[in-house]
């Protein structure tokens, strides 16, 4: 019985793949670190949309924040005859091997948003610089608190390198001001519910705080709700990161103080365009192309929409 099933399965697979033999048009694989976060969903979908506009078939692969799974996706994409990979790496160091493998197989890899620790494995890296963005947010944070007060930091998933890039960028500025005291630093896993719970508890221990710095917008929303419930929302400045829809709306309504807008649309569309140019024969792409992150506040909010600028 098992043997028959296995044979049938192989036959079905063979039938599926053999019909592909005659393909000519180039195909694009889109490998993203996770689809469990709206920001990456937007990145992947925008890349797929742009690829389609340019006339290419594309498929999205979800690495679920797991470099091993990511490596499997690369192997499958190479075997399935994809010609380019638009790639959002799971880990700067752990993803290099996969990219090198693709390069050897003649598949061009274009990194989106996050960097890999290799100068020449990827055809190009279009990067969003979390670290510098958090330096800018840090400066604004210092200013909005008049250089003194107690604040709380909510970290993302502690095993995620983005968590620490953001935190380090922020602290590289804020730690220079002795008047600013971090009374609690806790992880809320980039999660809105966890952020609300953690913030509720922190507020018990430290009822007098002036600011909250959060590693992403979902946590900023959760922290804000905890502050509302405690009747302290007016007094505390809440900072997020990403430029998600909820956060943009909240800044518009004067609830959150600021967030950092990354430009996933720009990044994804550029990556797809590069792939198009690669198929047409271009080989000299900028090895690293940083896409500046902009700080969004009530003052410039009118220029922004979720995940980008107004056209």
């Amino acid at each position: 019985m098992k043997l028959i099933t296995a044979v049938l399965l192989v036959l079905v697979l063979a039938a599926c793949s053999s019909s592909d033999k005659t393909r000519q048009p180039n195909k694009i694989a889109i490998v993203v670190s996770t689809l469990n976060n709206p920001w990456f969903v937007f990145l992947a979908e925008t890349a797929a949309k742009k690829a389609k506009e340019l006339g290419y078939e594309s498929k999205i692969f979800d690495s679920q924040n797991n470099t091993a799974l990511e490596s499997d996706h690369f192997e499958n994409a190479i075997a399935a005859g994809y010609d380019a990979i638009l790639f959002n790496p799971t880990d700067a160091a752990g993803s290099v091997a996969s990219v090198t493998k693709a390069k050897k197989a003649g598949v061009a890899v274009f990194c989106m948003d996050r960097e890999i620790n290799s100068k020449d494995a990827a055809a190009s890296q279009i990067l969003s610089d979390s670290y510098s963005a958090c330096i800018e947010l840090g400066k604004l944070f210092v200013k909005s608190l008049n250089q003194k007060g107690n604040y709380v930091e909510l970290l993302g998933i502690v095993s995620d390198n983005n968590t620490w890039n953001r935190s380090k960028g922020f602290h590289s500025v804020v730690d220079n001001y002795p008047g600013l005291k971090m009374v609690a630093q806790q992880s809320a896993d980039f999660d809105r519910n966890k952020a609300m719970e953690v913030m509720e508890s922190i507020l018990q221990a430290h009822p007098d705080i002036d600011g909250v710095f959060c590693g992403n917008d979902a946590m900023a929303m959760g922290a804000y709700q905890a502050l509302v419930a405690a009747g302290k929302a007016d007094k505390v400045k809440v900072y997020g990161f990403d430029g998600a829809e909820d956060a943009i709306n909240s800044i518009k309504e004067g609830k959150l103080t600021a967030t950092a807008m990354q430009f996933p649309k720009v990044i994804a569309e550029l990556a797809a365009t590069y792939a198009d140019e690669f198929f047409k024969g271009k080989t000299d792409f900028p090895k690293k192309l940083p896409i500046p992150v902009e700080v969004v506040t009530t003052e410039n909010i009118d220029k922004f929409i979720a995940y980008g600028k107004k056209d």
Binding site: D191, N193, M196, Q225
Partner: peptide, 15 residues
């Protein structure tokens, strides 16, 4: 309960 508390249904709720 979670959705009401957060005023938002998160796709990764309950992980």
């Amino acid at each position: 309960m979670v959705t009401s508390r957060l005023d938002s249904a998160q796709p990764n709720a309950g992980m």
